[in-house]
Amino acid sequence: MAGRNIQAARLLGPLAAVAENPRLRGPALGILLAVLLIAPPALGSYATVILTNAFLYVVLALGLNIVVGYAGLLDLGYAAFFAVGAYTVGILTERFGVNFWVTLPIALAVAGLAGVIIGGPTLRLRSDYLAIVTLGFGEIVRISARNMKITGSASGLTGIEQPWLFGWHIATPRDFYYVFLLLAVLAVFISVRLAGSRLGRAWLYVRYDEDAAEAMGIDRVRVKLAAYIIGAMFGATAGAFFAVNLGAISPESFSFNQSVLILMAVVLGGMGKIPGVILGAFVVIIGPELLRAAGDLRLLIFAIFLLLIMLFRPSGIWPGRRAGR
């Protein structure tokens, strides 16, 4: 283990050293944010869109990280919550003309409810049952979206209006770059606060030893359900903004592959480690762009990479402690 850590540290070491050092962390984050804030004019539209997508995945991956990394529950249907957010906003704004900002809390509530419905009965079961049930749930949501009239069947919803915020029409790719950057920063902030909270510590105990945690008075089903609901809300938020960004959504955006991609981001970077998960999100978005020449082999390369990570470095590529057990 130690040898491997040293190897990885050589690659990401300086980055991790800065992130772990409390005196350097603040200024480093400030510089990073400042660069990201002033970058768009220099980036060109292609890079802006890719980075926007990466921010979207940071939100999704941090949401799934709460379920997988913090609470230790394998969710293979996370795209379902992403879909619930996107479709709630899409249907309400496009079919019923409701203002986007009104639909946002509704989308969160619906996703939370979906989390309770699917998690409530299954969180008591074996963890691998949960994985399959979430997989089935993800498929149910996608197939339902394909077959129902209100969701626009297979072709999905189009013409979702872009929102206004105090006279600012959020419409151009650059506008959305800033919106998703803000969302990503918010997601990081909430994740950090959650990890240190009473609930975050409860998740940690439950993940390491359920029985001991229960003996300490932690209601394991309740804290798991909390992780599930909070994760669902992250996904729904991402979905809501995803819908207005593209203006059109279709069921295939929320397939099993989508869930897998988000899970890859969490696992590659390092379950439970926020900088690792952010790095993972960037890897799964920018990696395929760099591998464009590989064509059909791209996904295979990623799958093999994931397998190698699990076999040789299950705590992810980000060096450091508190690995997902």
Partner: peptide
Amino acid sequence: RLSILITALAVSLVLQNAVLA
């Protein structure tokens, strides 16, 4: 268990994408 489940998922993806390729 979480690690081995994800490993199994990775094996599944490798098989699928190898045949896809």
